[in-house]
Design a protein around this nucleic acid. Structure first.
Lengths: 300, 300
DNA sequence: TTCTTTCTGAAATTAATCGTTCAGAATTTT
DNA sequence: AAAATTCTGAACGATTAATTTCAGAAAGAA
C-alpha cells in the first residue's frame, strides 16, 4: 500500500483512515489499541470531535492520540482529522455506496458476516410471526403477582431460561427456576396451583419429560408460555401463548439469539408495565449488592 | 443511535441545520448570505473544518461566521458545529434499516419493534468494531486442546457464560465453568497454568473480583478473552482479545443479545475448524443421550 | 532480583481557535 | 450632499486545542 502524504493529499480512493488504523494495529501499544478500537467502532463519528473529546471517549490521554496518529503516518492530529473529513466528503456524496458494512476487512464469507445475515433474517421472520396481542398477553400473565411463575428449559435452552429467571427475580416475587433434571420435577409440581404460569423453553430435540410437565400444569389449570422453534414442540397444542422463534444459522447448532431477543423484550414490557412495583425492588437490590460488596460502582 | 450529548439540546428530529439556514436566509446580510450559500452547497462537508477554514472557503471573515450562527440561534460556533456532528451521527448510523416492517400489526412504538431497531443497530456497530483477526485469534486459543479453558460470568452474564460452556463441553475436553461466586475462585485458580485460557464476561457494574481473577490469570501466563460493553471493563487492558459488544436498548437493562450472537459465531468457528475432533465427540454424546433416555428423537 | 527499555499521562508549552471590539466602508435615510 | 445606519473585517485578547516534555509505571531482559 503506497501512501501519498505531502502537499496535495491525493487520498487514494480505496484506503480509508480506518483501513490504515487496522493495518497498523499490530504495531500499536496497548493504550493505542484501545484508542484504535474506540475510533473504529463508531467510525467515523467517533473521530469528529476535538482531540480531547476523542481521548476521553477512548479512555486514554491526549498524548496517546498524538503518538498514534503520528505512528500511522499523519503529520499530526489536525492532519489526521482533515483526512477523515475528506473521506467523509466522498462517502457522503456517494449515497448508498456501502451501507451494508459488516465486519470490517472481511469478505462476505467470514462466519461473523454469514451469521449476521442469518440472524437478522431470523429476527425478521420471527417478528412477523408474533402477534403483539399474544406478546401483551404473555406480559400480563407474568405481571400478575398472585400467580407463581415457573421457568423451565432444556439442555441448551436452560441458559435462556436462567436469563429470564434472573431478571424476573428482580421484577417480582414468586419466581422459580426449575432445574433441567426431570427427576426433581415432581417436587416443584407439588406446589403448582391454578392460575400459576409455566414458561417453557423447548427447541428441537424436545424433551419428552417437558411434555409431561406441561400436561400436569394444564391439568392443574395453569397457563403455559412456550418458546419453541419452527418445528414446534409437542407442548404447542396446549400452551396459552406460543412464541415460535427462528433458530436456523449456518452452523451445526441452532441459534438462541432471537429467543433471547424475545425474552429481553418481554422482560422490558413486564418491567415497564409494573414500574412502580419494580422500582422499589431494584433499589432494594442495589442496597443489597452494595452491602455485600459484590459489585463496585459503575465507572461512568 | 439517538443520543443527546451535552446540555439539553434535544435536536428536533426532523429540522436539520441546513433547514435552519435556509429558513433564515432572508434575514441575513449580504456577506452572511454568501456564507450560507457556501455552507449549504456542499453540506455538511463544508461545515466540518474550523471556523477559519469555513470563513476562507466562503470568502468572508470569521466574525461574519460567528454573527451568522448566533443569528441562527446557536450559542456560538462550537455549538453550531456540535449540532452538525450529531446530525451526521444519526445520518450515518441509521442507514436504511427502517424500510422493513417488523411485527405485522404493530405500530413502530411497540416494544418489540423498538427492540428490533436497537438490536440491529447494536449488531451492526459491534460487528464493525470487531477485527476478524481478533475473532480468529480467540478461536485458535479455544481450539488448542492442550490448554484448559475457564469460563466466568457475572450476575447477569452468567447465562451467556453457561451457554458458551454447554457448547464448548461438547466440542472439546478440559472446559470449566467458574461459578459466579468469588469465594470459590481460589479453588479454580489452584489449577490454572500458563497457556490456559480464561474467558471473561464482564459488563457494566464490573465486578471487582473479576479484575482480581484476571490479574491472577495474567500472572500465571494465561490468555484472556474478554466480552465487555462499551464502557469497558477494567480487564480490558490486559486481555489478549477483547470483544466490545453494544448493549444499549430501550430498557432498564442492558441487552445480551449481541453478546450471545458473538458467542454463537465463536462456537461455530471453533467447531468447524476442528470438525474431525468434534464429530466423534458429538456422536458419543448422541449415544449417551439415547442411552439415558433424556431426549427423544427429533421429529423431523 | 536489578537493570534496561518501553509505555503512559500529568503538567507545561506552544499553537490555534473563537469571540469581541472598533474603525472604516457600504448602504440607506434625511 | 450630509448624516445616520448598517455592515464588514483587521486586530487584539480570552479561551481552548494540540504538542512537547518529563517523570513515574509497566513490561521485558540480563
Amino acid at each position: 500500500m503506497l501512501k501519498i502524504r505531502k502537499g496535495e493529499r491525493a487520498l487514494s480512493t480505496d484506503t480509508t483512515v480506518q483501513d490504515t488504523i487496522r493495518a497498523s494495529f499490530e504495531r500499536l501499544t496497548p493504550s493505542e489499541r484501545q484508542l484504535a478500537q474506540a475510533l473504529t467502532s463508531h467510525y467515523p463519528m467517533s473521530a469528529l470531535g476535538s482531540i480531547t473529546t476523542i481521548a476521553q471517549q477512548a479512555g486514554v490521554s491526549t498524548p496517546t492520540v498524538v503518538r498514534m496518529v503520528r505512528k500511522l503516518g499523519f503529520k499530526g492530529f489536525p492532519d489526521f482529522q482533515a483526512r477523515i473529513h475528506e473521506e467523509l466528503e466522498t462517502t457522503l456524496s456517494t449515497p448508498i455506496a456501502k451501507h451494508d458494512r459488516w465486519a470490517n476487512d472481511a469478505p462476505d464469507a467470514h462466519i461473523l458476516n454469514r451469521f449476521a445475515e442469518a440472524t437478522i433474517a431470523n429476527l425478521r421472520e420471527t417478528l412477523s410471526g408474533i402477534r403483539t396481542s399474544d406478546f401483551d398477553h404473555a406480559r400480563d400473565l407474568l405481571k400478575d403477582l398472585r400467580n407463581h411463575v415457573y421457568i423451565v428449559g432444556g439442555r441448551i435452552t436452560k441458559s435462556v431460561a436462567e436469563y429470564l429467571f434472573t431478571h424476573c427475580q428482580v421484577i417480582r416475587p414468586n419466581v422459580t427456576l426449575i432445574a433441567p433434571t426431570p427427576s426433581t420435577w415432581p417436587h416443584y409440581a407439588l406446589n403448582m396451583k391454578a392460575g400459576d404460569v409455566l414458561v417453557i423453553f423447548d427447541i428441537r430435540r424436545y424433551e419428552r419429560e417437558i411434555e409431561t410437565l406441561n400436561r400436569i400444569a394444564a391439568e392443574r389449570g395453569m397457563h403455559t408460555i412456550l418458546f419453541t422453534d419452527r418445528w414446534k414442540s409437542p407442548v404447542t397444542k396446549t400452551a396459552t401463548v406460543v412464541f415460535r422463534v427462528e433458530t436456523e444459522v449456518p452452523s451445526a447448532w441452532d441459534s438462541s439469539v432471537v429467543m433471547l431477543f424475545v425474552v429481553e423484550a418481554l422482560i422490558e414490557a413486564l418491567q415497564s408495565s409494573a414500574w412502580k412495583t419494580t422500582r422499589d425492588r431494584m433499589k432494594d437490590l442495589e442496597g443489597l449488592l452494595e452491602t455485600s460488596q459484590l459489585f463496585r460502582k459503575p465507572r461512568v
